[in-house]
């Protein structure tokens, strides 16, 4: 599935985030990641699953510091996995809203 196909199947907002997190599927994650130039490994999936679980529990997306603190991932590694703004990038791929730390 390509990013164009994703945008036909589910609604994305003007910043490219899923409008409805319930419409997310692992295939959508693969396609959005590809668009970001990221090939998803098991380590990526661990973080994506954490971000989705966090969203389901708290009703909002975790910030960078929340991911590193609660999952115990070093910040450095997070930047290697999801370059350039990992909290935003992983939220987008995980189909949850942009982290609210950015207000």
């Amino acid at each position: 599935m390509t990013a164009q196909v994703v945008s036909k199947q589910v609604a994305l907002n003007e910043e490219g985030f899923l409008v409805n997190p319930a419409e997310w599927t692992p295939e959508i994650a693969e396609a959005l990641a590809r668009e970001e130039g990221i090939t998803l490994t098991p380590r990526h999936w661990e973080i994506i699953r954490f971000v989705r679980a966090y969203y389901q529990e708290h009703g909002k997306s975790p910030t960078l510091r929340q991911i590193t603190a609660e999952l115990g991932v070093p910040t450095k590694e997070l930047f290697q996995l999801f370059p350039k703004g990992p909290a935003k990038k992983v939220a987008r791929i995980a189909g949850v809203p942009k982290p609210e730390g950015c207000v």
Binding site: L64, R65, G101, C102, V103
Partner: peptide, 8 residues
């Protein structure tokens, strides 16, 4: 350094 900050 990081968000959030006072008066962005």
């Amino acid at each position: 350094v990081d968000m959030p900050i006072k008066c962005p």
